[in-house]
Amino acid sequence: MKIILKTEELAEACEIFARHDYVAVDTEFLRETTFWPQLCLIQLSGPDLDAIVDPLAPGIDLAPFFKLMADASVTKVFHAARQDIEIIFNRGGLIPHPIFDTQVAAMVCGFGDSASYDTLVQRIVNVQLDKSSRFTDWSHRPLSEKQLDYAIADVTHLKDVYLHLKGELEREGRTEWLAEEMSVLESRETYDLHPDDAWQRLRMRVRKPIELAILKNIAAWREREARSRDVPRGRVLKDDAVFEIAQQQPKDTEALARLRTIPKGYERSQNGAAILGAVNAALAIPKADLPRIPRSGSAPEGSGAAVEMLKVLLKLIAEKNGVASKIIASGDDLDAIASKGEEAEVAALHGWRRELFGEPALKLIQGEMALRFVNRKVDVVEFSLAAE
């Protein structure tokens, strides 16, 4: 294992990694006190080299690492890649390509819903990982040998997991299934959330268009403020305060001061003035231009029973094909199919999911397919057979 503290060492290591068609990647980071994750370690492993990069080393330039991440000839292997890619996107301005997420691949290969790295290493490599350093403060220096060993194990075994799952996908003819999933992880929109869309992170607790307009303005202001100060959103304003402001609609400092969720004196601060500006800007919107409250609409009669049948069908298909049900269709997918049928805009009616589950699901709710209980097992039959 090589510990990399200098740019020159990093460039040499990345040249070695680039000679092969894959590299296993992991990161360690902290984000409890910041908006942007603080990158503390980068672990890399390939056929010829295992290395830990210290991004906190004085003077180190991560440009060679970002160049490797952008090299289209090298597959970047992650486990549960989203947060790692978010860090690379924020620090390097790029999204690694191509990528292979072993957690997603494991779901496609029948290892259950969202299998952990520890579970896959145990089941595939037959190694029990030491978890005692899991809650390390990775920003602390120096790191112990035990901590470094723990960190590098996140990529050394990842190579074996990757090769096994890659082989499984090829044998089952499911390589393209994974490619569809990776396209979402490689999309810039997955990580580049616009502040004006920050309200979508919040659980909907407003009932009127004017409340939603205020909620959107306050959430966007909080997002920009948290980013500029590099602090968690809750340090700027708690979620409960965002909702109370939207519902109570304070127009001046006195009204803002009366809110239960606003700290004493906050109304006289620069943030208080910004909040009041956001509220009053929303209140000035003409009624006809106010945003509509997102509504799912009332479910058609009988759709509840249809959802229950779809759940049974999903379980049958998932078990038969050795694919985690979670990756085939979500509960929201089932609700939408039961209510809207072919018109449902859900992932389960597109790509490989449609072939595997979407088409049978549509046949089931259209009465062209039936479920029956035979010999203590639930089975699926075409309508013509069921009618007999």
Rank of each mutant, 00 (worst) to 15 (best):
R376F: 08
D240P: 08
D21Y: 09
H20I: 14
D21C: 11
W177Y: 03
P263Y: 00
S144V: 04
P47I: 01
M204A: 08
E254S: 05
S139C: 14
L215R: 00
S384C: 08
A151N: 07
V77A: 12
E342S: 14
L41Q: 02
V184D: 15
E189R: 13
R123S: 11
P263V: 03
E319G: 12
P209M: 05
G322Q: 05
L385W: 05
I245C: 03
D379K: 15
E32W: 11
V381F: 06
A336L: 13
I293C: 07
P209G: 07
F29Q: 07
F65A: 04
R188W: 10
C109S: 00
A257E: 14
R31I: 04
I3H: 12
A273E: 12
D137P: 12
S298Q: 14
F383H: 15
L143W: 01
F17T: 03
A387C: 08
P291A: 01
I327L: 03
D230F: 09
F111H: 02
G92I: 12
P142H: 10
I262N: 01
E388P: 10
I95Y: 02
I328A: 00
T175Q: 15
E170L: 15
K208P: 07
H350K: 15
E308G: 05
I52E: 00
P250R: 05
V323H: 00
Q249F: 14
I245P: 01
P286H: 06
D54S: 06
W138A: 00
L41Y: 10
L129A: 06
A81R: 02
S339G: 08
K311C: 14
A306P: 04
K320M: 05
A115D: 08
Q38M: 13
K315P: 12
T75W: 13
G265W: 10
G367E: 06
G277K: 02
K2F: 09
A106L: 05
E308R: 15
K216A: 06
E244V: 09
S144L: 03
L364S: 02
I245R: 00
E12M: 12
F111Y: 06
V184M: 14
P64T: 07
E15A: 13
I328S: 01
Q83L: 07
R295I: 15
K159N: 11
L314N: 14
D239Q: 07
D71V: 02
N90I: 11
A282D: 11
H157W: 05
E343K: 09
Q103C: 03
F29S: 01
L313I: 09
V381Q: 00
R227I: 09
I60V: 15
K208G: 13
L163M: 10
A115E: 02
P291V: 03
E211H: 14
D196Q: 08
K320R: 14
I262W: 02
A51N: 04
D26N: 10
L237V: 00
E225L: 05
I99W: 07
E244K: 04
E267Q: 13
V323Q: 06
E28L: 08
I88H: 13
V380W: 03
R233L: 05
I3S: 11
A338N: 10
I152E: 02
W352Q: 02
E168W: 12
R235K: 13
I337V: 10
D289K: 14
R295C: 13
E342D: 15
D160C: 06
E32M: 11
R171F: 10
E254L: 07
A278W: 01
D333I: 01
G367P: 09
V279T: 06
L178W: 02
K264V: 13
E355F: 11
E254V: 13
H79T: 01
P195Q: 07
A255C: 04
